[in-house]
């Protein structure tokens, strides 16, 4: 399943200042007994959003109905650490996020996010610290130029692995890319 192309996103931020937000926070393991990738938004940050019995918490940064216009999650360092569950980006996308900004995003989460059109944006610590102090501001993320800009004039460049960037901008299919190398794979197997 190809994600929707991602070129430019203009949206508002939702800030989680905590560091080391792990994939068990993003979606608790009890939501993983599914054979589908649909509808996981209900489990996104579930224990931050609800008490045990589906009653929304009063003090939570997360709107009950979904991210709405706050499609950009700004989070503390080492975001997405922990398990390899791709349910984490699936849940964040289904809840309504399209991008995560941090100073440092865990490897497997980053790889999973890119494959699903949730843009992981790693920026310098100074700009990151400033973004964390300004929840709800308007941010433009430009994947063509690899640049973020805020309504108050903050700017930061970011790097995205070039192939993943091409997949998002041009709709290149990574599996198709590997399948196109069938003869090289067959030759590799024969040579062993």
């Amino acid at each position: 399943m190809q994600p929707e192309p991602f070129t430019r996103l203009e949206a508002y931020s939702l800030v989680l200042p905590q560091s080391n937000i792990d994939t068990d926070q993003i979606i608790p393991a009890r939501f993983l007994t599914t054979t589908s990738r649909e509808g996981l938004g209900k489990g996104a940050f579930y224990d931050w959003r609800y008490t045990g019995d589906d009653v929304p918490k009063n003090a939570t940064p997360f709107p009950v109905e979904g991210a709405g216009e706050r499609k950009i999650l700004v989070a503390g360092a080492n975001f997405g650490c922990g398990s390899s569950r791709e349910h984490a980006p699936w849940a964040l996308l289904d809840y309504g996020f399209r991008a995560v900004i941090s100073s440092d995003i865990a490897d497997i989460f980053k790889s999973n996010a890119l494959k699903n059109g949730l843009l992981p944006v790693e920026i310098d610590r100074t700009t990151h610290a400033k973004l964390m102090e300004q929840p709800g501001i308007r941010i433009v993320i430009d994947l063509e130029r690899c640049l973020i800009e805020t309504e108050h004039g903050l700017r930061a460049e970011f790097a995205v692995e070039p192939f993943a960037r091409r997949c998002l901008l041009d709709g290149v299919d990574p599996l198709g890319h590997i399948l196109a190398q069938e003869s090289a794979i067959a030759a590799f197997e024969d040579a062993r």
Binding site: E86, S111, N116
Partner: peptide, 22 residues
């Protein structure tokens, strides 16, 4: 190393993964 579910699909279909050398 651990991989995500999309990559599980890639390996099932091609016995390969796309990887930058860490």
């Amino acid at each position: 190393f651990g991989i995500g579910t999309t990559e599980v699909g890639h390996v099932l279909a091609t016995q390969c993964v796309l990887q930058r050398k860490p």
